[in-house]
């Protein structure tokens, strides 16, 4: 996103966007007759104010990190993976299915269920990847369509295959669960689970693959310029498929966190969960770099979680947070405007 900007600008632009987003949000609250300070105070209380809320916020951040990594990974190879939502759903169902189908000791069962989620997500992303590599079918179209297929396919599996015409599956047994009684006690019955550690591990893996391996170098190189990469002797098609596979695996892992941690079961989705789509915004705000994604996911988690209590504490409707997020994304997306203004201000200061 910000390749053309200096390192300093890369950090400054998202920060300014967030501040501008919050300011515009405050103005909207003011115009609608609410008190912005009370509103934001409620938001902070509802996300970080008590141990329970902190637990819920961390739980919310976990799938955002995975979704953000998934989008960012594909983006670094020059691919727009809009299908993170679908890959997340199939990962969710696959992990729950493995969780329910086997009876094994936890040390084998849990990793197996998590890997099943990653594998399912990777497979789901493999289809647009191979279509792009072989037939040059645009991955945006295919991934969007694959989202719908995933949604209804997963609903079918849950209703007719995994459960006996129920709306939800059974709960996964303890041996495949990420649920954490320790965190639950610590945070007064929040749904926080061990997934956050996996998310942070995934961030490190993301960094190592992309920045510290030859494969990562090739992937990024393809992202910068396909023709040059090919001329340099890289296999562009192989890298496209590989990138989608890894991206899908991250997304599938995010689904496994929901399936084995947050909920502990699968259920019929009437609509998309939205986490996958928010992942696009997380990646954008995080500048597609590992640490940036962690901060962006944290911001999203705080905003979304804090929003829930805003109506009760301050009367501000939860929709306001959606607006604030939209404005932040708007400013990040129009980063050139901010960069231009910074340039002008700099000249003016001379």
């Amino acid at each position: 996103m910000f390749e053309r900007f200096s390192r300093f600008q890369k950090i400054l632009i998202p920060l300014i966007s967030v501040v501008l987003g919050l300011i515009v949000g405050a103005i909207i609250m003011l115009v609608s007759g609410f008190n912005p300070i009370q509103g934001y105070a409620a938001l902070l209380k509802g996300s970080l104010g008590e141990s329970f809320y902190i637990g819920e916020t961390i739980r919310q951040i976990t799938p955002y990190i995975f979704a953000g990594l998934a989008v960012a990974f594909a983006f670094r190879t020059g691919l727009f993976n809009i299908g993170v939502e679908g890959q997340l759903l199939v990962g969710w169902v696959a992990s729950v299915w493995v969780g329910l189908a086997f009876d094994l000791p936890k040390i084998i069962h849990l990793p197996m269920a998590i890997l099943a989620g990653a594998l399912a997500g990777a497979l789901w992303a493999f289809i647009p990847g191979i279509l792009k590599a072989r037939l040059r079918v645009h991955e945006v179209i295919v991934t969007i369509m694959m989202n719908y297929i995933a949604l209804h396919f997963c609903n079918y599996l849950i209703r007719f295959v995994i459960s006996d015409e129920q709306n939800t599956t059974d709960r996964v047994p303890e041996s495949a669960s990420l649920k954490s009684p320790f965190f639950e006690t610590l945070t007064e019955f929040s749904t926080m689970h061990y997934g956050i550690f996996l998310a942070l591990a995934a961030v490190i893996i993301y960094y190592i693959i992309l920045e510290r391996t030859t494969t990562g170098f090739e992937l990024r190189s393809v992202g910068f310029n396909q023709n040059a990469s090919e001329y340099a002797g890289m296999n562009v098609n192989r890298n496209i498929v590989l990138s989608m596979l890894i991206s899908g695996a991250f997304a599938g892992l995010g689904g496994a966190m929901e399936g084995l941690g947050t909920f502990g079961y699968g259920f019929i989705h009437g609509a998309f969960s939205g986490v996958g789509f928010d992942g696009i915004a997380v990646a954008l705000l995080g500048g597609n770099v590992a640490l940036g994604i962690v901060f962006a996911a944290a911001l999203f988690g705080i905003l979304k979680q804090g929003a829930l209590i805003m109506p009760l504490e301050s009367g501000v409707p939860t929709e306001l947070v959606e607006i604030v997020i939209a404005i932040i994304i708007f400013f990040v997306a129009s980063s050139y405007i901010i960069a231009y203004l910074l340039q002008r201000l700099k000249k003016g200061a001379k």
């Binding site: 929901e258 939205g274 109506p311 939860t318």
Partner: peptide
Amino acid sequence: QSNNDADYVTNMNT
């Protein structure tokens, strides 16, 4: 108000 399915438990607890 629940904006997605993950909010049910949170809202109940809140």
